Amino acid sequence: MKPGVEWGQPRTCTDNEQFGADLHAALVRTPKAISPKYFYDEAGSRLFEQICELPEYYPTRTELALLEAHAADMAEQFGPGVQLVEYGAGALRKVRLLLDALPRDGAQFVPVDISGPHLLAACDALAADYPGLAIQPLVADFTQAHTLPPCPDGSRRVGFFPGSSIGNFTPAEAEAFLRLAAAELAGGGLLIGIDLEKDHDVLHAAYNDAAGVTAAFNLNVLERARKELGAEFPQGGFEHLAFYNPAYRRIEMHLRATRPLELRVGGEAYAFREGETLHTEHSHKYTVSGFQAMAERAGFRPGKVWMDANRWFAVLWLEAAGG
């Protein structure tokens, strides 16, 4: 493959029809809940990048510091000749640290993300800064069936899943994703970031920032429904709610009704009691040993671990058998 961005025919897994169907399903279940993947339209992706810069939001700066300090050691685990696949690629900021540590000749980069415009803009910027790198973006929901480009001869496929995004899955969903990843990364491995268990006050502040950016990010799900699906709901009818749920070892984000109201979409009306919520996201916190045990069940062999001095965040190398 020639260096540069090979656009091909990127596949979009979610469209207005799927969003509408999933929103209806979310609003009829008890309790009401929708997948966090619908945060990431173009506006939501921009808001998330702002969250990553907030002083309260420690995961991004902590993981970046680990990558800056240990990228060469991490890249050494990959071996020569790599097809690097980034799941949930976003702004492609962290992967640059790995790319700088990899031999440029023969490297191929496959960023996978659900937000097409955001991904393709990020790939244009990356291509300008890494002119010798073959880039093949894939617009897809990486948790569902998808087809990666063929791995070049003599290369092995390595996954990169930073940002503790694995915490957005339930434990069962996380293990299912790891099984999928172990199969498509067979003979290679996965470099993954996980958020560790810590003081609950630190967690609360990270998801309730003073500037209100996380609140805007959460509420954008409804704004997206208004723009794309014609949803109708009262102005100020919902508010951001985030808290730590110790029973599940996770932060939960909800949209809470500020008063009795109806949310109308697609000809249907859904009633909310005052205080009733739409659950939009959860972020599970792990121990290293607990996560490694889950990865082993999914078909990986645990390898090196890098942690910050506070033991707030960890990056793990997992070897994928086979290939």
Rank of each mutant, 00 (worst) to 15 (best):
T147L: 09
T147D: 15
T147S: 14
P150Q: 11
C151K: 01
C151Q: 08
D153M: 07
R156C: 06
R157L: 07
V158T: 09
G159L: 15
G159W: 02
F160S: 06
G163F: 04
S165A: 11
S165D: 08
G167V: 05
P171W: 13
A172L: 11
A172W: 03
E175R: 15
E175D: 08
L178S: 12
L178H: 11
A183W: 04
A183S: 10
A183K: 08
E184K: 05
E184S: 08
E184C: 13
L185C: 02
L191T: 06
G193Q: 03
G193I: 03
D195C: 01
D195M: 00
D195H: 00
D195I: 00
E197R: 14
E197C: 11
E197W: 01
H200K: 12
H200I: 15
V202T: 13
L203G: 01
H204W: 13
A206M: 02
A206D: 07
N208T: 10
A210D: 10
V213H: 04
T214I: 01
A215D: 05
F217G: 00
N218S: 14
R226M: 10
E232N: 07
G237Y: 14
E239K: 15
E239G: 15
H240A: 04
L241P: 00
A242Y: 00
A247H: 09
R249W: 09
R250D: 04
E252I: 05
L261Q: 14
E262C: 11
